[in-house]
Amino acid sequence: MQSMPQLGVGTFRLEDDVARKTVTDALSIGFCHIDTAQFYGNEEAIGDAIQTAGINREELFVTTKVWHDHLDQGSFIPSVHESLNKLKMAYVDLLLIHWPSPNDHIPMENYLASLKQAKEEGLTRHIGVSNFTMAQIDKAVEILGEGEILTNQIELHPFMQNRQVVEHCKEKGISVTAYMPFAVGKVMKNDELLNIAAAHGANPAQVVLAWMDAKGIHAIPSSTNKDHLQANFDYTQVRLSDEDIQRIDDLDNGERIVSPDFGPKWD
């Protein structure tokens, strides 16, 4: 069974031909983790790209997420079947709760029971959560038991390092996956990151991915440019010093990019 790769490809905001081309390019470069979600509306295009690539299913790691409209017990499992039909797969490798139920409209016990059911029925190999706070992680572990939650996918980049949540997840044996690791392109313009990158003959995106790797944080950056995808894939050529890592640690200023009105009360 494929374990979650350190680096994946995010597909938020990628639609139709753009999503198809991006995933096709990523797979041809050597990426094997593709991250999508019901909410992105691109599961079908991604399924097409994966099928056309002709890569052995066992060599891939595919993540999708259940949107909060489908957290009630009547629509949770049917929505997962719909995702699998669109992806043209018998199972995903990782199924996440995309956001906790807004204002606990649906009790966590209910939708986590459905999440566990999806795993028991073989619809997914692993289960996890996304955008969960420390208190929500505690409650989820209480409901599901230790060792069930593979990851908590959260916004994380040099300017918002979410350290408390990262530490808390690690204590619970839960990995952290960073979405928006490049802070929607802001890392490419940051002087400190540009200086570190120049010293390594790299670009700031590669530096950020190397920094996350050093921290044991998975990353799913998004790019529609094949050269950028290739550069992201090649980040392992960058070897950061302890001083480099400290300089990046010091960029944290709590700048949150994603905070919808239905989101939880952040830590």
Rank of each mutant, 00 (worst) to 15 (best):
T151N: 02
W266M: 11
G8E: 00
K226R: 14
F12S: 11
P78R: 08
V129M: 11
W211G: 02
L112G: 08
Q51N: 15
L156M: 11
A219G: 03
M1S: 00
E120Q: 12
H98M: 13
Q136L: 08
N131P: 01
G201R: 08
S79C: 05
P264I: 05
N253T: 13
I248T: 02
D252S: 10
W67E: 00
H33Q: 11
E192T: 15
H105V: 09
I196G: 09
A37Q: 09
I149Q: 09
T177R: 03
E192G: 02
I217E: 07
F76I: 00
K139P: 00
E43N: 12
G147M: 06
Y111A: 04
S223L: 07
T24F: 08
I196P: 11
G122L: 07
M134Y: 06
I55A: 04
D227S: 13
A53S: 13
M89T: 01
K86E: 01
N152R: 02
R20Y: 12
E192K: 13
Y179G: 05
A135V: 05
F76M: 02
Y91P: 01
R239A: 09
P102E: 11
N42Y: 12
G145M: 10
L150G: 04
Q51A: 14
K65D: 08
N225K: 14
I77H: 07
G41W: 06
R20N: 03
A214I: 00
Q237V: 02
T36Y: 04
D213L: 09
Q51D: 09
A45N: 08
H218F: 14
N253I: 14
I46N: 12
G145A: 08
M1L: 00
A197P: 06
L193C: 06
G145V: 10
I174Q: 02
G74M: 01
G147E: 03
E155F: 05
T224C: 03
G47K: 14
R163C: 01
P264E: 10
R57I: 04
H228A: 07
I34A: 02
D48G: 00
V238M: 09
Y111L: 09
T177Y: 05
A178N: 04
V208N: 01
T133G: 10
S259R: 15
T52Y: 10
I154V: 12
V258Q: 03
H70A: 00
I77Y: 05
E167S: 14
P264Y: 08
V258L: 13
L209K: 10
V176F: 02
Q6M: 11
G185I: 05
D250W: 07
Q51H: 15
N253S: 14
M180C: 12
L115W: 06
A214E: 11
Y235I: 06
D250V: 03
H168C: 10
A53Y: 13
K88G: 00
